[in-house]
């Protein structure tokens, strides 16, 4: 990896001021950044270590939710008793991803900011609009089995790799950020962006802005939820398709639904129109199939990933069924029921 200047931030203000320089990278867990630096995909001239900042707590909010500090490790978050009891969807999604070692290091904020695992993005010998804007996207006509089917552009068909973020999208979390011009909140659905003609930009963060916390609203859908992840091996692999489903039900009817997909788009793909279709409907396979069809109405396959459309359709129906039955997918016993 290229040499860089190391700065240990002693305050958020200092870190944000430093991060405004595009050649500077913030480091916390480092599990993605160092990986990318070893491949020369990321070549920062300065790395700012924020791990000594006080962003490590999970606290109750006045609204009745929880505020998760950006430096809370993924494992601590997944196993936190309040998260397990009130937001088991989030816990399950985190445990579906990575490995125990990586989850011990990886931070909450870093999980949001991890980059795509597109082969071409990682391979500096190939063009990539995300890595080197304007050079082209070999994935569109290349090896694209793991790529996106929703929200793509001719410039990029990469997917966002996170499992945790799919749950956070379904739970309608809020991202708290602080930058050189102060603090603001970003609705989770607005935090990640679609590639359009600027796939090099993953999020709506402005220069120097640092994620300080992720806030969960009071409703956690603890009774009826699931995180169903489908992948090429049973553990420690990125999703081909994943579904976070959550329901509030009364008398066999859906009152409120949440539905977000991973592995299918440049961002966690939550579809509020598909969710709205389920409200007031019986919690039945027919309703679920109609919502799945609606969510996938604009899905577009490429040479190797067209299978994802039917896989996603079936995964949505199965996940909503698991959520309705109150039998969430186990992340240990991988049999899908």
């Amino acid at each position: 990896m290229n040499n860089f200047e190391y700065l240990r931030a002693e305050s958020l203000g200092q870190a944000a001021a430093a991060a405004a320089d595009p050649a500077t990278k913030i480091i916390a867990g480092g599990t993605n950044l160092l990986d990318l630096m070893k491949y020369n995909v990321e070549r920062p001239s300065r790395v700012v270590d924020i791990t000594r900042l006080p962003l490590k707590d999970i606290a109750e909010t006045e609204a009745g939710g929880l505020r998760i500090g950006a430096l809370v490790p993924n494992s601590d978050l997944a196993y936190d008793e309040r998260i397990k009891a009130r937001y088991p969807l989030l816990s399950s999604a985190i445990l579906a991803g990575a490995s125990p070692q990586l989850r011990n290091s990886a931070s909450t904020g870093g999980n949001l900011l991890q980059r795509t695992r597109c082969y071409y993005f990682y391979d500096t010998a190939t063009p990539c609009n995300k890595r080197e804007p304007g050079t082209g996207c070999p994935a569109v006509h290349g090896q694209n089995r793991i790529h996106a089917i929703l929200g793509t552009s001719q410039h990029c068909i990469a997917t966002h790799p996170s499992d945790m973020c799919v749950a956070l999208a379904a739970l309608a979390a809020t991202v708290h950020v602080t930058g050189p011009n102060g603090s603001r909140d970003i609705a989770f659905g607005d935090f990640h962006r679609l590639p359009g003609d600027a796939p090099e930009i993953d999020t709506t963060l402005r220069p120097g802005e640092i994620v300080t916390a992720v806030e969960l609203p009071p409703e956690g859908f603890a009774a009826n939820h699931t995180y169903l992840k489908l992948r090429d091996r049973l553990s420690y692999a990125f999703a081909l398709v994943s579904v976070a489903a959550a329901l509030r039900q009364e008398g066999g009817r859906v009152v409120e639904a949440r539905l977000a997909l991973g592995g299918v788009a440049h961002k966690p793909w939550r579809d509020e129109a598909a969710e709205a279709m389920l409200a007031g409907k019986p919690a039945s396979p027919e309703s679920f199939a109609a919502a799945a069809d609606h969510l996938l109405r604009d899905a577009k396959g490429h040479e190797h990933n067209a299978f994802k459309i039917e896989l996603a359709r079936r995964a949505i129906v199965r996940a909503l069924g698991q959520a309705a039955a109150g039998t969430p997918q186990s992340q240990t016993d991988k049999r899908i029921r």
């Binding site: 491949y39 270590d49 011990n104």
Partner: peptide
């Protein structure tokens, strides 16, 4: 050397981590 195999696992303050992805 990229956090995918676990051969470099050590314990830091009692927690297992991939030492290849730690500065």
């Amino acid at each position: 050397d990229h956090g995918q195999c676990g051969a470099c696992t050590v314990l830091i303050d009692g927690r297992r981590v991939n030492s290849c992805l730690v500065l």
